[in-house]
């Protein structure tokens, strides 16, 4: 099985993962392989297709398959008939990866991220807020990407929050790709039946970086973008809201870890909100607003220090 690198660890997979960079041969940290996975009928929690327990996450995805993530080092999948590779890979790199990160005590934050000369800048927001498009704008300014959709976070020896890079590919809708001046010819699709594509990026920063700032991006009815610091009292809640798949934390007995991580992040990292118009805004303009706003805030802090 070939090895791949993602979030700082080595993954061996019996299913091709075309968007992940290949890694050197050797003992992997995580193995992804087809195998038997028990069903999720009769789960303790009703009305749900998944269950999270300490070091064990199990889920059934309609028309795709059953998945088991265990011990922070193994993902087993049972593919349903007619499910194609893209459907299975989408789950592996999405929900399963989030469960795996938590089992490995890496906080998954629903955010894109880039490296600046003063550390990583993360942009978090709900699906549809414009994270990927904003990422395109930041990269157009020459900033190397660290993550497209989920950034891993760990803490350095001094408690400094560190951004862990994901993989060197963005996922963009055809509309956004074309507006950024890119075509879709030859690009692998995220799903065979969707006009959303993986686009490999040249500008990728593969090492962990201290986090310089986190920006909460939201779409509003406002006619102009508005960038401002988030009130202190709201910062922990804001970060907690964007822990990816935060519903897993209770079952994994990691709720305290998740909360403590969010508190530790806001103690060290400034948090801002960018309220953007819900219509199309040039990605580079959004990116410039973010960077200028962060820089202005840092200037103010230095001036009053």
């Amino acid at each position: 099985m070939p090895n791949y690198r993602v979030y700082g660890f080595i993954v061996a997979s019996d299913l091709p993962l075309p968007v992940l960079p290949r890694a050197e041969a050797g003992e992997p940290d995580v193995t992804i392989a087809a195998g038997p996975v028990p069903g999720t009928e009769g789960l303790r929690t009703q009305f749900r297709n998944w269950e999270a327990e300490p070091d064990r996450f199990i889920a059934t995805f309609h028309e795709t398959g059953r998945f088991l993530v265990s011990g922070g080092n193994r993902i087993t999948y049972h593919r349903f008939d007619h499910a194609d590779d893209s459907q299975v890979v989408s789950i592996l790199l999405g929900t399963c990866m989030a469960a795996l990160l938590m089992q490995r005590r890496i906080l998954p934050l629903h955010s894109c991220s880039v490296r600046t000369d003063q550390g990583a800048v993360l942009v978090m927001g709900v699906s549809g807020a414009g994270k990927s498009t904003t990422l395109g704008g930041l990269m157009a300014l020459g900033l190397p990407m660290m993550a497209d959709d989920v950034t891993g976070i760990v803490f350095g020896e001094s408690g400094q929050p560190m951004a862990i890079p994901a993989f060197p590919a963005t996922r963009l809708w055809q509309d956004s790709l074309e507006k950024l001046g890119h075509g879709t010819a030859g690009l692998p699709r995220v799903r065979t039946d969707l006009a959303k594509f993986y686009r490999a990026v040249d500008g990728f920063h593969p090492e962990a970086e201290p986090i310089r700032a986190i920006v909460y991006l939201k779409a509003t009815n406002a006619s102009e973008p508005r960038f401002h610091p988030i009130e202190l009292a709201q910062r922990t809640e804001c970060v907690s809201r964007f822990v990816h798949r935060k519903n897993f934390l209770d079952g994994m007995h990691l709720r305290r870890w998740g909360f403590d991580s969010a508190v530790a992040i806001v103690r060290k990292v400034p948090l801002f909100e960018l309220a953007r118009p819900s219509g199309w805004v040039e990605p580079v303009d959004l990116a410039k607003t973010i960077l200028a706003g962060i820089a202005a805030s840092e200037d103010m802090v230095r001036a009053t220090a």
Binding site: Q46, F47, R48, N49, W50, A59, F61, H62, E63, S90, G94, T95, A98, V126, S127, G128, V190, R191, D193, L194, K196, R245, K246, N247, F248
Partner: peptide, 29 residues
């Protein structure tokens, strides 16, 4: 969308409208 995604642990953007129905039914319950 965010509510359904969190409940069902899916990325609803990567599913067709028909595929979402079963997840939405569970979420409504």
């Amino acid at each position: 969308r965010a509510q359904l995604d969190e409940h069902a642990a899916i990325d609803s953007a990567h599913h067709s409208l028909d595929e979402l129905l079963a997840y939405q039914s569970d979420y409504h319950r």
